[in-house]
Design a protein around this nucleic acid. Sequence first.
DNA 1: GCCGTTTTCGGCCCGACTGTTTTCAGTCG
Length: 576
Amino acid sequence: MPVHNSDISDMLRKAADLLEIEGADEFRVRSYRQAARSIDNLTENLTDKVSDGEDLTGIPDVGESIAEKIEEIVKTGSLKQLEEIKKRVPEELADLLNLEGIGPKRAKEIYDELDVDSITDLREAVEKHKVREIEGFGKKTEEKIGRELERQSNQESRTLLSRAEEIAEPLLEYLNECKEADRIVIAGSYRRRKETVGDLDILATGEDEEAIANHFVSYEDVDEVIKKGEKRTSIRLKSGLQVDMAVLSKESFGAALIYFTGSKEHGIHLRERALARDLKVNEYGIFREGEDEPIAGETEEEMYEALDLAWVPPEMRENRGEIELAEKDNLPDLITLDDIKGDIHMHTTYTDGGASIREMAEAARDLGYQYIAITDHSKRVNVAGGLDADELAEQLKEIDELNDETDGIRILKGAEVDILEDGSLDLPDDILSRLDLRICSVHYHMDMDSDKQTERILKAMDNPWFDILAHPTGRLLQKREAMELDLEAIMDKAAEKKILMEINANPERLDLNDRNCKMAMERGLMISVATDAHSIGDLKNMKYGVYQARRGWLEPKNVVNTLGVDELLEHFGKNG
DNA sequence: GCCGTTTTCGGCCCGACTGTTTTCAGTCG
C-alpha cells in the first residue's frame, strides 16, 4: 500500500489527540498538529521526497524529530511511537474530542472515572446519569453531551457551501431588518468560499449590542440558543446549522473581520508576525505594547498594512504560503466570475440533460457568455442514454444549424467521452476528430486499486484526442470518496501532453479540490472551470467553480475558458 | 516539538463564554 500524505498527517493528528488526552505538553501537541496541517498543504508527495533523500525539515513546522517520524511511516507504514501511546490511551477515546464541549481534560476525566473509552460507552454513561457524578461535571454538562451525541448520530457535521448559501441568504435579509445594526456580514469559511462550512459566522456592528442579539435569537428558524453573552451569541437553526454572531464597534470591524474570517492558522500566523514586531493583534485591532489605542482596526487593509502585508483575498487565507506572498506584494491576481467567457461542459436532452441545445445556448447567452460547448455522454453511460458515433454525428448537424440561426453565442461541438476500463476511449477517433473539444472522464469502476486506476487514465491520455480530464477524482462531497489514484503521475503526464484538468463547478463535485488545483497550477497545467450543467439552472453553478479556482490560487491566464472563442479553438486545435 | 528582524534556550495567539465553582478551568473559534 502506498503511503499518502494524508496517512501521515492522520497519524500525527492521532498522536496529538492521544498525547493531549494523556496530558502531554500542550506545545508539543500543537507541534504535531501544525506539522500535520503543513503536510496537508504540500503539493508534493512525501513518499517521493523520502525516496529522493530530500531534507524534510525544509517543510514548515517539520523539525528533526517529526522528519524522522515521517520517514518511519513512509518506510514501514506505521509509527512505533503511536502504537506505544495507544497502549496507554485507548484509540477510540480520541473520538470524544469531536463532541462539542469535550476536550482533552474532560475526555480523560470521563475515562479515568467511568472507564468510558468510546462514543458507545459514553452514550450509555449519559443515559445512566453517571457523567454528572464526576467532579467538575454537572447536570447541565451531562445534558449538553447527551444532545451532542444525539446530534452527531443523525447528521452531517458540515454543510455544502451551496446549501449554506440557501440558509444564509434569508437569514442575512432578516438580520438587515434590525434597525440597531449598522452592518451585517458573514465571515468564516463561508467567506473563504470553502466547499463545505461547519457553521456560519456573522459579524454585526452597532451600539446597542443587546438589541442586535435579541433580534438574532428571535429569527423564526432558531431551534436552540446555544449561548448568549454580551458580545457573542450562538444559535442552532432548525436545519441543524450553527450560527455564531459577534457584535462589535465599527472601529474594530476590520480586525474582527480578519479574526472571524480565519482560517485559524492564517490568524495565528498573523499574530505571530505581530509579536515579532512588538505588536499585539486581537479581534479589536493592532496594538503597540502597553498602549490602549489601536494603530489599526477599522479596515482589513489597514490591519494587513500595519503588518507590512498586502491585503489577502479571503479564499487564500489558509496559511499555505499566502502571507509570504503578501509580504513581497506578490499575490496572484485571482480569477473572477467576470473573467469566464464560456462554459465548456454541459449535457442536453440528447442524453441526461433537461434542456435542448437551443435552450442551453440561449440561457448561456443571457449569462453573458460568448460560447458554450455541448458535451453529452458517450454510449458507455447507458443510464444517461449516452451517444454512439452516429447519434453524435446527428447532434453535430443540429449544432451547425443552430449556429447559423442563433446570434450572440457560439455553440461548440464536444463530447464527454468515457474512459473505459482498459484505458481506451468510448468513441472512435474519426468522430472525435470532428469535435472542437473533447472531455474525458471515468464513470465506471471507480473502485479499482490505485495502480490500475492510474494506469487506466495514463493510457487514455495517450489518445491524441484527449483534451480535458473531467472531474478527475470522481469524488462527491459527503457521498463518495475520491478514487484511489496517483494524481501527481497523472498531472505530470498531462503537462507533457498539454492535457487540461477540470474544476467541475457542480457544488457536490468541486473536483479538482483547492489543493489539487494549486498542484496543477504549479505544474503549469491549464484548467477548465465548467459546470457539467444538466439543466438551465445548473449553468449558474459556475461561481462555485470560480471560488474553488480562487482557493487554488488561479489567475485568468491559468483558466482556458477565460479565452475568447477564437483563442480557445486555437488552443484545442493544437492538441489534435 | 518547533523555531529565531533581540533568542540555539525559552518562548510558543488571544479573548469570550459556560458551568461549576466561590475565583476559575475547560473549551471554543
